[in-house]
Write a protein that binds this DNA or RNA. Sequence first.
DNA 1: TGCTATACTTAGAACTTCTAAGTATGTTTG
DNA 2: CAAACATACTTAGAAGTTCTAAGTATAGCA
Lengths: 109, 109
Amino acid sequence: MASSLAPLVLIILRRQESYGYQIIQELREKSGGQMAVAEGTLYPVLKKMEAKKWVEGVWKKADSGRERRYYKLTSNGTQELEQQYSQLNFVSQLIHKLWNLPLSTSSNL
Amino acid sequence: MASSLAPLVLIILRRQESYGYQIIQELREKSGGQMAVAEGTLYPVLKKMEAKKWVEGVWKKADSGRERRYYKLTSNGTQELEQQYSQLNFVSQLIHKLWNLPLSTSSNL
DNA sequence: TGCTATACTTAGAACTTCTAAGTATGTTTG
DNA sequence: CAAACATACTTAGAAGTTCTAAGTATAGCA
């Protein structure tokens, strides 16, 4: 369960343009193998993000001779990412706040 | 978009038992109005969590005379919460890690 | 030549969340 | 007292996301 893949992908593309297969590898590596996103999950997400103009995709022939679809962030996507990133931080902070509230030690009823 | 409501609810119930309507209020208050969960979203989630034995629900008559269904964490639910909480922290840290990687300044192709 | 890694596609199922109703009871206010 | 409002829970259906599980195709290697 990726729990909202889009921001993770946008963050990766913020650093440098990339393509589907590599994004999957990077997520797996950077997460120490914890985050295993299936191809059937990621590729439709990339298409949806392209349709929303968050990213721009172009076909390029790699040195290997293979065709790859490289994606890069648009300015739209940068805005979107900033919003989603701060939203994620907000929720994360809310969770910590709730977690750290003192536990009730006796019945409250 | 609540982005996985279950852990938030479990965290609230970890502090003290509560009921649906109050959980909605608490989420709204503690989030400064940012997190507005609809009743039609929360109540089915509570039922699902009860079916999974993460929480236990009982009907009680409140001082007001109203019937409420109070939920409290089971030991099962405590285990589940610990797992989900560390999973959330993991993803949150991964996101920060990826965000803070140096941006590429020139073409990488 | 056959296997493995790379690279992308697609259909359908499962799950989550939201919308938008509805029901019922207690409280407040004109 | 009646109307309006806040409390409290229910449910059906739509929309959105992710997973499963296929499939296609090419490059490199044994």
